[in-house]
Design a protein around this nucleic acid. Structure first.
Lengths: 223, 223
DNA sequence: GGAAACGCGATTGTATCCAATGTGTCGATA
DNA sequence: TATCGACACATTGGATACAATCGCGTTTCC
């Protein structure tokens, strides 16, 4: 079998490329929960040997995206509605604390960046309110960037890392895709208020706003 | 020491054994932060090939114990005092929430187990108050079990997993080893009060007690 | 004498081969 | 016919061989 060796990015490890790609496929739903992943098949798909695939699998399992039972196989991890709800609860806990810290210590650049992302989100939503095609993914990406920036602004990298981890897992169910138009509009409105709270350094408001934002999203999920 | 393929547990993967062992060595301080880990050397030590070592390394990196720079090498991760303090802050956040939930939903078995672990800790401390030898490790292990049980009793596995992750990392600095005798006694006393709070289902007290317990430990750290 | 280029050794990244083990199928037997 | 067991196959786990790359010392050129 001729290994096509698609020499993608120089200096980047094949294992990393595989990890990113499979992760993306899981997050986008192209790989469904419970679906089986065999190393041989993936190796063929990526034109590589099983070695980098295995490396990627170990990371994916450690990051909670797949489940491996020894000598049996690897499957995309299933999550019960209860698990999803739990994830949102913990996110609410972590990110509300981060929002409070961000309100205290945010820099001017943090604020500018938040406004920029928010503006882009609103433009995206205004252009395609019907939300038919791939704009949902843009919206999800921007939303992630928004939350990411607040976490960074908190100044606590452990807090940020823990929350990002949960955000990634939570997006398995592709939040915005299950949101109605009204729910997206409400989410954007909450972002705006969050920005004001952080801008005016209103710690308690920022905390409460973030908590409400995330718990609200949790209750809007339709499995 | 010749590690001669002692495969103690049948059915357990070598990679898992290596992961556990290296992790333990990092946590116990036998592998110092910044120290280099070469696959070849580890393979020799474990009487295995590089393959399971690599697998373990990927997991260790994903779990935040080591750092790998491509084609350069793997080193035990360095953490600044600020990072350590941050970890404790997040633990306080997560575990206080868990304590509150545990106070609400704990079973009789949960409570019994907490009392059992606590009793064992106190006996251990009473036997060796001078804390010279390996009793510190017993104490650390029991302490971990105590916190672990409360996290489980919370009923939120995501919450528990996130906190356990941080606990493991935090023990890089081997909490109890830096505690004075008085500080250990105080810690045990806080555990007792925590048990009472959970027993009587006093949610707010349990939360506050846990927060105080962890933040107190943070402030007792001497780097 | 200093700086850049070259080459060597050390170490990681990938491929492939072999071993171990779980799974499913097919058949024998009560 | 249902159940148990053995055997073949599929798939992962580990070992080994090879390739790529980085660090660093040496050498050479200006």
């Amino acid at each position: 079998m001729a290994r096509t060796r698609s020499n993608a990015k120089p200096g980047l490890r094949t294992a990393d490329r595989v990890y990113e790609e499979i992760r993306r496929e899981i997050l986008s739903g192209r790989l469904q929960p419970g679906e089986r992943i065999t190393e041989e098949l993936m190796a063929e798909r990526f034109g590589a040997s099983r070695t980098p695939i295995r490396s990627a699998m170990v990371r994916l399992e450690s990051d909670g995206f797949v489940e491996t039972t020894p000598r049996s196989g690897t499957t995309v991890k299933q999550r019960s509605p209860r698990d999803i709800a739990d994830i949102y609860d913990v996110r609410a806990l972590l990110e509300s604390a981060a929002a409070g810290l961000a309100a205290q210590t945010r820099s001017a650049a943090d604020l500018r960046e938040l406004v920029r992302v928010q503006t882009e989100m609103e433009e995206c939503f205004a252009r395609h309110p019907s939300s038919g095609g791939g704009e949902i993914e843009d919206l999800s990406r921007l939303n992630k960037a928004f939350h990411h920036r607040i976490l960074e602004a908190s100044g606590n990298t452990t807090l940020a890392d823990s929350a990002v981890r949960l955000m990634d897992i939570g997006f398995l169910i592709n939040t915005y895709a299950s949101f109605s138009q009204e729910e997206i509009a409400r989410s954007l409105d909450e972002h705006r208020k969050l920005i004001v709270a952080i801008e005016t350094r209103d710690v308690h408001w920022a905390e409460a706003m973030m908590r409400a934002h995330i718990l609200g999203a949790r209750n809007s999920l339709r499995p």
